[in-house]
Amino acid sequence: MKKLNNNLKPPFNLKTIFFIFLFFIVFVISAQRVGIPDIVDRLYEASLDLIGVKNTSKINEGLSRISKEMWPPVVESKKDINLILNFDATNLPLFSYVKVYKDKLYEINPDTLLLEEIEEKEIEFLVEPFGYLKLVFIKILESIEIAFWASFISIVLSIPLAYYSAKNYSPNSLIYFIARSIVSGLRAIPELISVLFMVLAFGFGPAAGIMALGLHSAGFLGKFFAEDIENADTGPQDALIALGASKWRILKLTVLPQVMPQYVAYLLYILDRNLRMATVIGLVGGGGIGQELKGRFDLFEYGHVTTIIIAIFLVVFIFDQLSAKLRSKLIGD
């Protein structure tokens, strides 16, 4: 009995304690460096504010500047009819109407150096009740299209990449190495950075976004797919090797059916990810709803921003539900 105890490794020893201590020190230093205490401070303050013990908090101050303007979300669009080319008052778009807003014009009096009202002007605006919603819809559709095309490009690119970066199918180690490097390289550059280069190459708009997202996710799919090919059950593959089948035939008949469910899962994940990223890359010129979001944010039009955020949330949520259904349909029996 005693002998057995001697042979067993203790669950922890001095080394373990040392490493725990070391980890704790690094943890504390790093927390100080990145401002974790400040986060705790502010959250504490805000919670006191919330229950009414204290009446100022930095979080509240920071957000209150825009929170009032963020609600309600803007759905209508207004446009000065003088800026509309060939405006025809008898033939207005559906549900829209013309509304008159009074606007005052000011001028600096050169004698007194004061602002003086010189005239009150009436400006006619064409109001479309759901005009902005329509614009958001068009823009978000563009984002969805970016996501789909990017995913399509990534599928096309990932198939050869996966084939050559799967160790058991790559023709030789040099090609294997090159394919693996490409796959890693594609994943290494974040979309937000690569889209900057793509904007230079393809210009502002959806094309840049599609290329940036497509290349990045091709790296992901290529890696995952290659690893699945490597891990596939070798039994059926041996059976076909023994029958004298060529490599790609073996891949098509035995490996593909095995890895397909996993591949569909990856694909749906990539599609989901591309959809979310497609809304972001617009911020740096990649087209889609992100461009609109950035524009409105910079113009302090926070009501519009709320509309956009709600729209993005809805699209992502609906896609989530759809992909769950699609997955069970494609993978299930």
Binding site: G235, P236, D238, A239, L253, P257, Q258, M260, P261
Partner: peptide
Amino acid sequence: STIYQNFNLVSRS
């Protein structure tokens, strides 16, 4: 032709 211990069939086909 060959027959295998673990059948070596493609189970999802």
